[in-house]
Design a protein around this nucleic acid. Sequence first.
DNA 1: CCCAACTAGATGTATATACAACTTAATGAT
DNA 2: ATCATTAAGTTGTATATACATCTAGTTGGG
Lengths: 152, 152
Amino acid sequence: MSVPAKVRQMARECVAVRTRLLNRLVTGVCDAGLRPYGVRVAQVNILCAIANSGPLTPTDLAAVLVLEKSTLSRDMAKLLEKGWVETQPGDDARSHRLAATPAGVAFLEGIHPVWSEAQKQLVKRLGPVLVAAMTETVDEIWAEQSPGEQGA
Amino acid sequence: MSVPAKVRQMARECVAVRTRLLNRLVTGVCDAGLRPYGVRVAQVNILCAIANSGPLTPTDLAAVLVLEKSTLSRDMAKLLEKGWVETQPGDDARSHRLAATPAGVAFLEGIHPVWSEAQKQLVKRLGPVLVAAMTETVDEIWAEQSPGEQGA
DNA sequence: CCCAACTAGATGTATATACAACTTAATGAT
DNA sequence: ATCATTAAGTTGTATATACATCTAGTTGGG
């Protein structure tokens, strides 16, 4: 009560604080499940996107994931090092394409049970309404980018 | 089509990739609006939580925001340095309480127009259904923690 | 043909985040 | 009272993230 009404409103209604809190919660649940595999959900998401949408350029992948190309550049270094992704020559000497290797695909298949368990926990924790709404909104974002080029 | 069904499912249904994508989107929109003020949404969220729920201990604040205490420890250093938060002695010699200073509250009031504009953009971008679902889910999380102790 | 403008990726720097380990203080069992 | 255990914060280390800048390659105007 001691704070101004505007500040109270910022606390009560802020979309960002909620989105960011949920992000920490979800990332934490996934990373905990993945810990035995020595990988985090950020990398798994990227690998999964490449496996399903690749081969594609880093720029296109960054657009799909709404990620900075510079961020992706460093994440890719780790996936390349692990042998889960390989680069192919691009149309252009500046560019290249990213593709999941058989080892990368096998890794994803291997963690499917862990992924599945995490999904279950998350739907329970977040509620099906929220999960459905997120799916719809993100699908719209992907549809806007270029119809038919779904990502992760 | 060339990837196994399990890997396709992981791409199509994953809650984490969506949550994390939305987090990047929302954080980016807010940080862009806050750039002239030399602060990011992470710090604003913390300050706002302290202004509304404080004085409270770092441990309690971390619980409200679903944040690691170690993360908070470093974020607090910046808020203390800016003079937006002050520490008060705690019940215990190990602990202390965080409270927003008048300057901190004034800063929050000052950015209200920018916050408000960002909210408008975000509701438009995410859709009212998703925003409502996030609000409901996070309110439930806060209610579970300790009835009456709402946070950010 | 040549150079300006642009594009793709990589690198410099800073913040946000978390886990593990550490320090200091409190508590409890005997 | 003493010491093991627990609790609160901080610090070490690593990843994720973004903006600004840099390098290299491409392209278009003249």
